[in-house]
Nucleic acid binder design. Sequence first.
RNA 1: GCUGCCGUAGCUCAGGGGUAGAGCACUCCCUUGGUAAGGGAGAGGUCGGAAGUUCGAAUCUUCUCGGCAGCACCA
Length: 649
Amino acid sequence: MSQISITLPDGNVRKYAAGITGMDIAKDISTSLGKKAISCSINGKHCDLSQVIQSDVDFAIFTMQDDVQALELIRHDCAHIMARAVQEIWPDVQVTIGPVIDNGWYYDFDRKDPFTPEDLSTIEKKMREIINLKDSVRREIWDRERAIKYYKDNNEPYKVELINSIPGNEDLSMYWHGYWQDLCRGPHLVHTAQIPSDSFKLMSVAGAYWRGDSNNTMLQRIYGVAFQNKNDLKAHLTMLEEAALRDHRKLGREMDLFHMQEEAPGQIFWHPNGWRIYTALQDYMRRMQDKNGYVEVNTPQVVDRKLWEASGHWEKYQENMFIVEVDEDHAREKAINALKPMNCPCHVQIFNQGLKSYRDLPLRMAEFGSCNRYEPSGALHGIMRVRGFTQDDGHIFCSEEQIESETKIYIDFLSNVYKDLGFDDFKVKFSDRPDKRSGSDEVWDKAEKALLSATRAAGIEPELNIGEGAFYGPKLEFVLTDAIGRDWQCGTHQVDFVLPDRLDASYIGKDGDKHRPVMLHRATLGSFERFIGILIESHAGKLPFWLAPRQVVVASIVSDANDYVIKKVSELNNLGIRAEADIRNEKINYKVREHSLGKVPVILAVGAREVQDNTVTLRRLGQKQTEVKQFEEILSKLSLESTPPDLRN
RNA sequence: GCUGCCGUAGCUCAGGGGUAGAGCACUCCCUUGGUAAGGGAGAGGUCGGAAGUUCGAAUCUUCUCGGCAGCACCA
């Protein structure tokens, strides 16, 4: 038998007979390592310890101390154990897939009756029993026919379908957890008891379509979370509880920012406090766009179907549009209009007024465009996903040669805005052609290439998002995260060769001929509504001073100070500071508590002494200590703080 | 849109086939009090909506609207 060299991470080389397994090596290194080992790496690939090694390799052993590998295995094995538990309790349930996800795993089942919360505890209990059996995990390679026959015999049609969709004639790996087995790539733990039985929890059940396709059966998905130890699980659950406190829907109510009601699902009633945030943000964006060479426009809400037919929206986007039929007495036919779901076709109409020259390009056109989209009911989510919203929309009409420089300029612009708003880090995704699209493949090739290379030129390597582009062009998505880690697309930048063509936009080039401009669709915040939702959650309601709806409350301690309070509030207001008086007949403790809960960043308390000395006692949100200051000093200080970031210095 | 769960006073929530209950908020009175709830009194829901079962429904059934989680869809 031939000798092979096993190179360990520290550079040591050990010689073994070919055909040795990872576990053999672990045990050979030390008995304790043999016990602690959970998996290994063979030439950088994460493998089972049972993996047989036939040639020289780089090799490493993983234990529970290796976070990345340990968590992956724990979660993956949990998925299998859960599926086994479910089938032990309900033998007629069919299993499908069960991957590892952030913090845990899920497994999709086909079962007639819904899983109840009580079922989840039953399953958890059964899982612990299985873990305690300390069943070893075994890997077997099966050929396709055997696997298909096995699953057919066991009445598992989903698995058969899965196998049939695995390309090529590659062999399939089967993993056995005791007597129970599942088709799986692996790797897995050595035995079930390596899962810490007190560090996982089944979280929820929800419907999920088989293979993610809404034409397919809806399965039942059980989500679980799992960690290396009890404390990590506890920390995760605590984090979730704290995240719930930052939910913009909860804070929106508590801070009296907005409300929504049945009569207008997916639309927002902005209260005075919320509208202050909105307008402060809009004022900021308007200044930023002005400074960056945009011209601001405004376009109609209700537009005849003819324009939507021309733009392609009628064909590709109709199910998302609010259709308005107008049946006027004298009209020969019913007029069919739609509320605009996007601003782009209207912007082209403005571009098309009068002849444009290459000298007019790039033309950066912006609109705080109010849009309405009939979003599926299940998609609505607080103010983050609504049916009526306003985009900080813009379209850059330019030549093909200008795509790259305009993209670069825009990415810089967006980065500055995000930075000003406290988001230094954001994800960038590149979405290419969707199935449902306008324009030829040739045009799409050109658009995708242009956008991607421009993005790279701006120093960004985006994540790829296959098939997620808009129907008229590929897009760059700038993604921010909410309190519980859900991703939301906010900014976007899209290259479009299709719409200018469909709507016959043109400019006269240097050569005197007509040319098609390219349109770059771009939105920075995305929608004010969604962005404000993200802002609220990321700050837990404690918005930066310049965005806080109520920046200052001046509160009297004794009623003799009321006149002074009112006078000071008006002096603050005169400097543009959003200040309110609280001269209610309540104790200062009560007022402090209430305005603290209301997330007011500064409370100025005024009693007899302050009136006497023309001072105020300042208390900042979240701080216990107070400081007595001359009012003039406070005035200039707060005036500075209330200055938006683009107006400082 | 799909699956599941939920819908009781402004808010958070209890109750549950015989015509609703708590805390906070609100109103009034007393209190003028120094930095996260001072005290007292009072008013306020017909239980998301519709239909049905029943002598009787907020409580059971069906439909419908809305919300939540996930899926699908997407700023």
